[in-house]
Amino acid sequence: MSLDTLPRAARNNHRRARPPGRRWRSRLDVKAMPYALVSPYFLLFAAFGLFPLVFTLYYSLYDYDLAGTVEWAGLDNYTALLGDEDFWNAVVNTVAMFLIATVPQMLLALLLANALNKRFRLRLPIRMSVLLPLVTSVVAVAVVFTQLYARDWGLVNWVLSWFGVDKTNWRAERIPAWIAIATMVDWRWTGYNAIIFLAGMQTIPRDLYEAAAIDGASRRRQFWQITLPMLRPTMIFVVLNSTIGGLTLFSEPTTFYGGNVDGGSQGQFQTVAMFIVKQGFREFDYGYAAAAAWLLFLLILIGAAINFLVVQRIGGRK
């Protein structure tokens, strides 16, 4: 595209000279082509987005059993779920692991982003290495961590033994299992979130810091009074992302128990996503699994709303 577009453009003003068929075709092109361009996405959306969503509702109203009989159940699946101890156990596990993972992760990611925002050598290699966990496959990481947390020969118990801590059976006990899984999640996502925070920090005008420094504000004060409030939009993005990811947690806890969706001998680290897979695809109770999927969605909405409100308050005013 250069200067020669102009004379040609002038020439094309004499479009009337063209055969009418071509004009019609070009109008069709302008009017219809945009729809043609977006249609692949929306056809896929209809088939693999809208259809499953609507039919999850449909399935959730029926009762399926192993023999293959199907019966109308109304809201029975939902009422049964709300009285199902295993379901509540999965909800508690999911929320607990989400909190144990996310709270420290956000603080660490903020600190790390603040550190990454300084001037130092080897910037790119250091940024790349904190992203390294993200590109590693979840299953591979969970396998490695599971070995690190092994009771008798795991590195974690060995290191803890220096401080006189007795051997912990990380997989068998509830809270240790939550912590072990939360560390896997944090290992994967802290660096990524730090990079996102860093991107947000770099959009904050430097004059703000200079003005604050002239006014005698300490670095710590600058972080709390300038960086955090200015980061709020980025934080909303990161927190919503972590909420969706954390409440649908599946790969780490499943791999922690050797690829089994039971989540430990007592279900001590079974998440809601694992519960859905177990009900739907190990016990073939499709209706029950579908109802659980809707409740999971509800849980995500509640989680997102709470997080949104919390983040809105960060950094004071407004």
Binding site: V38, Y41, F42, F45, F48, G49, F51, P52, L53, F55, T56, Y58, Y59, L240, I244, T248, F250, A273, I276, V277, G280, F281, Y286, A289, A290, A293, W294, L296, F297, I300
Partner: peptide, 25 residues
């Protein structure tokens, strides 16, 4: 309107939500 629809689909964890009908399909 269509662009807003795209944004909304990003917020729904379709993979977990729609797993039963997708499997039956």
């Amino acid at each position: 309107l269509l662009l807003v629809l795209v944004l909304l689909t990003m917020a729904v964890p379709l993979q977990q939500m729609g797993v039963v009908p997708l499997y039956r399909l």
